[in-house]
Simulated assay, not measured.
Amino acid sequence: MSDVLTAPVKIKIITTIIQPGTETEKFELWSEGKIMQKNDQIYLQYEEIQEDQRMNTTLRFGQEDAIIMRNGDVKMRMPFVLGQVRRGHYNSEYGQLPIVTKTKEMKFEPSETIQNGRFYLQYELIIGEQSVGDYCLELNYTEGNK
């Protein structure tokens, strides 16, 4: 018997961007995908379309760490560990850009079933030794259609 649970989910993602000298920006994305649980880690997989670019996104998270991986028109790897600085990268048609995340807050609120829960992440994004702002990611997922 496999130790991996899988189920379809509906995902609501709210991203808030706070950059120095500009107004706070807030984006909301709805998607459908699948959730998998392996040991104490959750894997959410879904497709994003931003400005005509398609990306398959995988978000892996638990209580103490997380990682966002994107493949498609944009390739990205952003790791997060609470209270720590982590290095990642962002690849686009213009080449690879090293990025750094400094995780300030992370909360994983699972429910009794795999198909429902909430994940919250607040981090500072650093590109080229300079902070480009604070980002908040709030992700809610609920049971999807089979």
Score class of each variant (00 low, 15 high):
residue 28 E to I: 03
residue 109 E to T: 08
residue 65 D to C: 10
residue 3 D to P: 03
residue 9 V to F: 07
residue 74 V to N: 04
residue 91 N to Y: 12
residue 31 S to R: 15
residue 89 H to G: 00
residue 130 Q to T: 08
residue 117 G to Y: 14
residue 119 F to S: 07
residue 6 T to P: 01
residue 90 Y to E: 01
residue 146 K to V: 00
residue 93 E to T: 06
residue 72 G to Y: 10
residue 72 G to C: 09
residue 79 P to C: 07
residue 53 Q to W: 08
residue 101 T to E: 05
residue 72 G to I: 11
residue 88 G to N: 04
residue 87 R to P: 03
residue 137 L to W: 09
residue 66 A to V: 06
residue 46 Y to I: 05
residue 140 N to E: 13
residue 137 L to N: 00
residue 122 Q to L: 15
residue 64 E to W: 10
residue 134 D to Q: 12
residue 31 S to F: 14
residue 31 S to T: 09
residue 35 I to A: 08
residue 104 K to M: 14
residue 24 T to D: 04
residue 88 G to P: 06
residue 120 Y to V: 08
residue 23 E to S: 02
residue 126 I to H: 07
residue 43 Y to P: 02
residue 32 E to C: 04
residue 63 Q to V: 09
residue 46 Y to C: 03
residue 32 E to G: 00
residue 42 I to A: 03
residue 1 M to G: 04
residue 135 Y to R: 01
residue 13 I to S: 01
residue 44 L to F: 05
residue 143 E to G: 02
residue 115 Q to H: 06
residue 48 E to H: 03
residue 102 K to C: 09
residue 38 K to S: 04
residue 31 S to C: 10
residue 36 M to K: 15
residue 143 E to W: 11
residue 4 V to R: 07
residue 27 F to W: 11
residue 142 T to N: 12
residue 52 D to S: 03
residue 63 Q to G: 00
residue 20 P to W: 14
residue 76 M to A: 07
residue 71 N to C: 07
residue 121 L to D: 01
residue 39 N to T: 07
residue 95 G to T: 07
residue 6 T to I: 15
residue 59 L to I: 09
residue 126 I to S: 03
residue 128 G to H: 10
residue 116 N to L: 13
residue 36 M to V: 10
residue 115 Q to E: 14
residue 101 T to C: 05
residue 11 I to H: 10
residue 25 E to R: 12
residue 143 E to N: 03
residue 66 A to H: 12
residue 78 M to H: 05
residue 33 G to R: 15
residue 40 D to Q: 13
residue 132 V to D: 02
residue 141 Y to D: 01
residue 93 E to P: 00
residue 141 Y to P: 00
residue 5 L to T: 04
residue 2 S to M: 15
residue 18 I to V: 11
residue 64 E to Q: 13
residue 104 K to C: 05
residue 56 N to R: 12
residue 118 R to S: 06
residue 90 Y to I: 06
residue 65 D to S: 14
residue 27 F to L: 13
residue 16 T to F: 10
residue 88 G to A: 08
residue 8 P to N: 08
residue 111 S to M: 10
residue 141 Y to G: 00
residue 86 R to K: 08
residue 119 F to Q: 11
residue 107 K to M: 08
residue 66 A to E: 07
residue 107 K to W: 09
residue 88 G to E: 09
residue 41 Q to N: 06
residue 141 Y to H: 03
residue 101 T to P: 02
residue 48 E to S: 01
residue 92 S to A: 07
residue 98 P to R: 08
residue 87 R to N: 04
residue 47 E to R: 15
residue 59 L to E: 04
residue 95 G to S: 09
residue 61 F to N: 06
residue 11 I to R: 13
residue 144 G to C: 09
